[in-house]
């Protein structure tokens, strides 16, 4: 059973990792999930949860930041995840699912190969 008391241990552990996060935060890869009405209705909440889980599971928390944004403007292609790798062009992934998130994190973030078939260019 999770209790509030456990937060003390989590705080101490997180504090130990915070120095590393602050140093690298500026140059982090960013995963941005659209979380407006259109995104939420299309399934953005589980997509965001998958991003968080995948980043933590692969131990990428110190170099990948997951954030939320409002309406990206192409509501019919939601859920949308934008990937910003420093020094590279933005990649927009559309019609996302938690399963596709796992593949994008593995292929794009870890291996550096854009998952072309899920991008907006391949789905217009």
């Amino acid at each position: 059973m999770k209790t509030l008391a456990e937060l003390n241990a989590i705080r101490d552990r997180a504090r130990a990792q915070m120095g590393a996060l602050r140093d690298g935060g500026e140059n982090n890869t960013r995963l941005v999930v659209g979380m407006a009405t259109c995104g939420i209705a299309a399934g953005a909440r589980p997509v965001l949860a998958a991003c968080l889980e995948e980043v933590q599971r692969r131990g990428l928390s110190n170099r990948v930041t997951v954030t939320q944004t409002g309406c990206i403007g192409v509501c019919r292609l939601e859920p949308i995840v934008e990937v910003f790798v420093p020094g590279e062009e933005k990649v927009t992934y559309v019609n996302m699912t938690p399963e596709k998130v796992s593949q994008v994190v593995a292929e794009h973030i870890v291996n550096g190969r854009v998952k072309m078939e899920y991008t907006i260019g391949a789905n217009q």
Binding site: L4, L7, N8, I10, R11, R13, A14, R15, Q17, M18, L52, V55, Q56, S61
Partner: peptide, 13 residues
């Protein structure tokens, strides 16, 4: 409880 540790730290979430 968390003091200076932000609520969006991966472990806290």
């Amino acid at each position: 409880t968390l003091e200076d540790v932000p609520l969006d730290s991966p472990d806290v979430l």
